[in-house]
Nucleic acid binder design. Structure first.
Lengths: 250, 250
DNA sequence: GGCGGCTCTTGACCCTGATCAAGCGCCGCG
DNA sequence: CGCGGCGCTTGATCAGGGTCAAGAGCCGCC
């Protein structure tokens, strides 16, 4: 991970550093470990291997394909996009990562990042050294369990899109997913801003940008959503979920 | 896992059971652990939590969606297909699992199997209790590492198909992948039999069965492969890989 | 404040692959 | 041995979404 330039100066946060502790509990990881019954009095064991990095500016890369894998990272703020490009420049977007979500889990197997990760807006991260985390996981079963769970979850997420669905179904499912993820982090599920371009959405959903534009308009004309440039409002949550039901396998 | 009926009578294999040991080394899992520097003299620790199950006959289910998750399994013989169906009966195939490959890793996060697994031909499995394996993993770092690696690998595999490729590219990539996987297990990479129907391939590749049929014919007419019902020969491996290069990201 | 560039939208047309339909061949069963 | 069923193939047609092209709105920069 090319964090040298943007990395904050000190390795952050001891257990008695109240502010940092509260702040870092916004990382999915720490809080998930707590949820998993991790002994709070030993929380410093987790925190000593955490390093806050950023801010990454829009367009700045967090890591690039092929770089040696050293750490996974939880998004603290902003949105990260992971993607690969084929030789003729076409881009496949693997995912968007919102605050509280983890990037880098797909790098373990090859010990190299298999994709690029770029900030779509100003981004801050919690960086976890993976070797240290794995060592810790042998002593703290809750952390091991949590890692297994997160990895397994990502397999499921990756196969979600894999089905053969219409442009409308896919776009609706994407919007519902975003809505749920924002809701899970305490943001409004019905009103949020799209931090990625139409082209990014298209490359994620395997559509042409023009199709994204057209389908969004159709969804708006049908009264499911309201889109104003990148400002997004869900006006009929139930209706949208109905459109998405095949993809999301309700 | 609904193995009660077909499960072999005894929980199999102590470390000094030479035959079983050799046999079980065909499980990806055991051998991978060995590769990872696992102390062979302690191999029984792994073997006591292994249970050989099967044979499952063609069409018989190994597990079904929604069943509580208890174990992952390595395929010893035969092919397993995992799939989900939406309410109007359309099937999405998530994967095919050949000897040496692991099923059930995507079940960890929800503690339920998120898909169905069915035998496409006579199948034998090595069943690993996941809770026991996780416990063992805390004591044996090689096993933990291996589990992380396998999980991470599956994330990558799941995103392989996710790109937007032509029918020909997808089918070529599928064939190349099959070829490599057979080669990795010591089978011929150029001549093998397709254990799944055209419809299964179609549901895996997001195509219509008719398209699979047509594209196979085209690949045959162009001299890349020879297909005789389910007997498959790669006649131009390099050419096929070229067709598949976008998908496989060579 | 105006220019230039980029993202997004909208329209027209086209192509890949889905769908519908029919026929074939292999295989199991009576 | 003949019948029937299923999986596969092949042909004809159709449509969803891609591509190409042009224009509109927003924004930053000079």
């Amino acid at each position: 991970m090319s964090t040298a330039r943007t990395r904050s100066a000190r390795p952050v946060a001891t257990a008695d550093d109240g502010d940092e502790l509260r702040f870092c509990s916004t990382c999915a990881f720490s809080s998930a470990c707590l949820d998993n019954g991790y002994d709070k009095s030993r929380l410093h064991e987790l925190h000593i291997l955490v390093e806050h990095t950023g801010p990454y500016r829009e367009g700045e890369h967090v890591f690039r394909e092929g770089e040696p894998f050293g750490a996974i990272a939880a998004v603290r703020a902003g949105t990260v996009k992971t993607y690969v490009t084929d030789r003729d420049g076409r881009e496949t977007v693997l995912g968007f990562f919102l605050p509280g979500e983890l990037i880098g889990l797909n790098a373990i197997s090859q010990d190299r990042y298999p994709c690029n990760a770029v900030a779509l807006e100003s981004v801050a991260l919690c960086r976890f050294s993976f070797p240290m985390m794995a060592t810790l996981a042998t002593r703290v079963p809750g952390i091991q369990q949590q890692l297994f769970k997160l990895l397994s979850e990502d397999i499921g997420k990756a196969s979600l899109l894999s089905g053969d669905y219409s442009a409308e179904e896919r776009l609706a499912a994407f919007m519902v997913t975003l809505s749920r993820r924002y809701a899970a982090r305490g943001f409004s599920p019905t009103r949020f801003s799209l931090t990625m371009s139409r082209t990014d959405m298209a490359n994620y959903l395997r559509l042409a940008p023009e199709t994204v534009s057209r389908v969004l308009r159709r969804l708006q004309d049908s009264g499911f959503v309201a889109v104003e440039r990148r400002e997004f409002t869900v006006t009929d949550p139930a209706g949208l979920e109905t459109l998405a039901r095949h993809v999301l396998r309700v």
